[in-house]
Design a binder for these strands. Sequence first.
DNA 1: CTGAATCCTTTTGGATACTG
DNA 2: CAGTATCCAAAAGGATTCAG
Lengths: 121, 121
Amino acid sequence: MKKGAFTCGLDAALFVLGGKWKPLILFHLAHGTRRYGELRRAIGRVSDKVLIQQLKELQADGIVDRTDFGEIPPKVEYSLTAFGRTLGKALVPLCEWGTRNSSGVEAIMVRRKAREHRHAA
Amino acid sequence: MKKGAFTCGLDAALFVLGGKWKPLILFHLAHGTRRYGELRRAIGRVSDKVLIQQLKELQADGIVDRTDFGEIPPKVEYSLTAFGRTLGKALVPLCEWGTRNSSGVEAIMVRRKAREHRHAA
DNA sequence: CTGAATCCTTTTGGATACTG
DNA sequence: CAGTATCCAAAAGGATTCAG
C-alpha cells in the first residue's frame, strides 16, 4: 500500500457506507435478519433498483450476508456479517446524536428548504 | 411536528453532513480554528466552489462559525460552534472504526475498482 | 416474491476565469 | 487571500417495465 487512500478513518468509513440508503440498511439489519420485501417496506420510499444495487455492494464489501433459499416463490434473507455488525456499532453514537438533536435537525431542514425556495424565486 | 421526517437518528445526522467534504471539514475543524486557505490545503484536492458551498451550508446550519476580519488582504477563519463540536464527538467512533479497519476498507476499494473496470469492459 | 434491464431526471462536484 | 460566476461532466437515484 504505497499511499494512504484516506486522510482519516472517517473517510474510510464514509467510503463504505456511501449511498443514500446504506446507513438505513445497516440500521434495519442491525436489529435482525430481514427478508427482501420486509426490508424494502421498512425503508419505505426506495426503488428496487437502488435498494438491490446497494445491497449488492454491501454484500460484495462483506458487510451483509445474502441467503437465497432457492425456492418458489423466491425467498431471500439479508443479515449483517460480523464485520457489518462492528460498523453498525460504530454508527450508534451518530444515531444517538441525531435522535437527541432531532428537533434541531428538523429546524435545519426547514431552513434549507426555505433557502432553496428563495433561490428558486 | 406531525410527521417524523427521519426514520432514525442516523438519517438526521447524515442529512446534516451530506456532502462529499463535510465530514472532512468537521474533522479538520475539530482540531482547531483554521483559515480558509489552510483548510483548503489540508483537505487537498477540492475546488473552491465546492468547499465554499459546503462551508456556507455548515455555517447556515449552525455547525461552523465564520469570522471575517474584514482586512486587506482578506482573512477569514472557520471554527466549530458548540453544536458542531457535539456532532464532531459523535463522529469519533466512526472515525476510529475506519482507522482500525483501514486496510480492510482499502481492500474493499480495490475490489470495487476492479468491478467497475470489469463492467467497463 | 425477488430481482434484472432500460431510460430519464436531478444532483453533485469540478475546471476555469475573474474580482475586491 | 478569499471568494464569485459560469459552464460542464459525471454520478446517483428514481420510474417503469419485464422475468423466473
